[in-house]
Simulated scan of single mutants.
Amino acid sequence: MAKRASNEHATVSGPIRIGIGGWDFAPWRGVFYPPGLKKKDELAYACARLSAIEINATFYRTQSPATFAAWTSGAPDGFVFAVKAPRGATYTSDNDRAGAAIQHFLGSGLDELGDRLGPILWQLAPTRKFDADALEGFLRELPQKLGDRKLQHAIEARHQSFAHAEAAAILRAHGAARVIVDSDAHEMTGDVTADFVYLRLQRTKEAVETGYDAGALDLWANRLKTYAAGAVPDDMPRAAPDVHMPKVSRPVYAFVISGAKVRAPAAAMALIARLQEK
């Protein structure tokens, strides 16, 4: 088994994990990754500077148990991978077909991640409109456990019709987190619907060295702390503003992804630095 990398630079206060989407991205070489770093060492380099990574290769194709095991051995103790579920499971309106794809995905070697397995991201098609019965049916297909491990399910519903109190209520009933997306393309709702919070930050700008400017980084750092403490930030729009989850500390996962992707690692590291400040 490969020697695991150190994660000493990635510790953040409280149950907050911050990362990026994937780690194999050519424009990061020479910007995030130092010149001359071997491609095989990029995962370890990223893990040493972040506290989570959202794996997106699983969205496009089935991975093997050996691949999951290799990712596990390349990450340090305490590191977490969120895993993006395959589009075959999320881009269909046929829940029977989705159920078969879900079972295939969960049986493909996901358990090889062991205690490095974090939330599973289920990204619905952007054209999929809210339908209460269809959403209920889909959520019933998601198992609560993989072996003895409790699963965390995060639903990214991108159609504006999901910004609805009934959608939030259904997600709460199933313990699934509504993904909070900071994007120009989709409406953001900040409701908490599970015992964890999952965010995807997509407004990085290439002209800004840290992706988000100082004001935006401070804003998001404070929001993440508020979510981790069990509350909802006052400035976040909500589909169900009158519904409140129990105010208990909960894990928060935030991934800087899309936008000016070349700046994503810098933005994630800048957020980590802010959370480490006294």
Rank of each mutant, 00 (worst) to 15 (best):
E187P: 05
K150C: 09
R203G: 13
P27R: 07
E136G: 13
D24R: 08
A168N: 05
A176L: 09
P237S: 06
A168M: 14
Y45D: 04
A173N: 13
D94W: 09
K278E: 14
I170Q: 07
D96W: 13
P241T: 05
A154T: 11
G74N: 02
E206M: 06
G118C: 00
D213H: 05
S64T: 12
L113H: 00
T204F: 09
A5D: 07
A169R: 15
R263M: 04
D235K: 08
S258P: 02
D195N: 13
P35Q: 10
R29C: 07
T72E: 01
Y212P: 12
V181K: 04
G78Y: 06
G19S: 01
P15H: 02
A214Q: 02
A52W: 00
T92F: 14
R178M: 13
T127Y: 04
A254Y: 05
A260I: 00
M245G: 01
A239V: 01
T72I: 06
P86G: 08
S13P: 11
I257P: 00
A194S: 12
R49C: 05
A100V: 07
K84N: 08
A194T: 00
H174R: 06
G19W: 00
V181L: 03
A163H: 12
I257C: 03
P27A: 06
G137V: 14
D234A: 13
L142P: 12
F138P: 10
Q123L: 14
A154Q: 10
K84P: 09
G36W: 08
A157R: 13
H9M: 12
R128G: 10
A177E: 10
P76Q: 04
D41A: 11
D131R: 13
R203W: 04
S258C: 15
G19Y: 04
S6A: 10
Q152L: 09
Q276C: 13
F81A: 05
N7G: 11
R203E: 14
V83F: 02
S108H: 04
K261Q: 09
L271Y: 04
A125R: 04
K150G: 15
D133W: 05
C47M: 11
I16R: 00
D115S: 14
I20L: 07
R238L: 07
S51R: 00
D184K: 06
Y60K: 06
L139I: 14
P143H: 09
D184Y: 03
T72A: 12
G36H: 11
A57E: 00
G22L: 08
P76N: 02
V243Q: 03
S161W: 05
N95D: 08
D96T: 15
A157K: 15
L219A: 08
L171H: 02
D191H: 00
D94V: 10
K205D: 01
G107A: 07
T58A: 03
I170V: 09
N7I: 13
D184P: 03
A132S: 14
S108N: 10
A2Q: 05
K3V: 04
S64I: 12
A168F: 07
R274D: 03
F130S: 14
K225G: 06
A266Y: 01
D131P: 15
I18C: 10
A176G: 00
P76S: 05
G30Q: 08
H174Y: 15
A216P: 01
T210A: 15
R61H: 01
A185V: 11
L217K: 03
A82Y: 01
A268E: 04
I120A: 03
K278W: 11
G99N: 09
